[in-house]
Computed example of a mutant assay.
Amino acid sequence: MRFGVIAFAATMLVGSGLSGTGALAQDQQTLADIRQELTVLNVEIQRLKREFSTTGAPQTQASGSTVLERVDAIEAELQRLTRLTEQLNQRVDGIVKDGTNRIGDLQFRLCELESGCDIATLPDSPTLGGDVTTPLVAAPAPEPATPEAGGTELAVGEQADFDAATKALEAEDYARAAELYTAFDTSYPGSPLAAQAHLNRGRALDGLGDTREAARAYLASFTNDSAGGTAPEALYQLGAALGRLGQNSQACVTLGEVGTRFPGADAVSAAQSEMTALGCN
């Protein structure tokens, strides 16, 4: 919902101009009284707009001594922000309904005060802020999308681009594969194939000997989907990469989390072997 819509909707809830005059009989109000109410509401709009302006730098911090602790902190913060967003959405829905009813009441009273106005011909009050569920202009029909095996529809060309990168990886053309997976991430943000693409990009970077960037790719894969089918392998590969970078302490913690988070996964045995090789306690 656009900023202006939210600000105006919030104004209709907080503004006290209408509630203060609700006790007056309709026949005691003049057109000037109603216009005065609208003026008061306009002042409230300007005041509340300032409340939607930021007051400083964000306070969110992804603290933690290990990579996994920082990932967990990020996940917790995302959950908190999601809850706040849902609460705001419910509040705004209530504000829109209340504000729309108030506007309809104003239209009714204005019609009563104006000569030549037929109340029976008054149109329905438009939804405050516009009806976001129905577009004003019919959108063109979307191009056919390729359905993924899991049922999620992919963008046109998305599966083909992913397959091309995978083919390069299988052919051990690591430079080409890394380039194609990077382009895939840029072209299809939020793709259902993103976690697998990051994981494969890490493998390609490992093939090029770029362990540091590979570790970042594995972390991106795990962060993108920390509970999906690629998560155990991504977490194992991240721990192994940290070990190759000499970060043995973080590597041991990360590898230990594979069995804790995903007992029974194929990557658990590989993680345990890697922990033995690193001398983890």
Results as ranks from 00 to 15, higher is better:
R2D: 13
F184Q: 08
T39P: 01
I74T: 14
T55K: 12
A120E: 13
A277Y: 00
G207N: 05
T230D: 11
G279S: 09
T100V: 00
L136Y: 09
L180E: 11
G239S: 11
T182G: 14
I45Y: 12
S269M: 09
A25H: 08
N281P: 15
E143C: 02
A271M: 03
L41M: 11
Q26H: 12
A160M: 04
L154E: 03
E148W: 15
G116C: 01
T186P: 03
L154R: 07
R80I: 03
P189F: 06
Y188N: 07
S16C: 07
R176K: 12
G20E: 12
T146Y: 05
T21C: 12
E51Q: 13
A73W: 01
G15S: 15
V67G: 04
E44Y: 12
L41F: 10
N224R: 15
D131K: 04
A214H: 08
T39D: 10
V5T: 14
L31R: 15
A171R: 08
C111I: 08
D124F: 06
A10M: 13
L245R: 05
A204Y: 06
G264T: 05
R91I: 02
G22M: 13
D210C: 03
H198C: 03
V5E: 11
Q79K: 14
P192N: 02
R203G: 14
L219K: 10
L169T: 01
D225I: 06
S191C: 04
T66W: 09
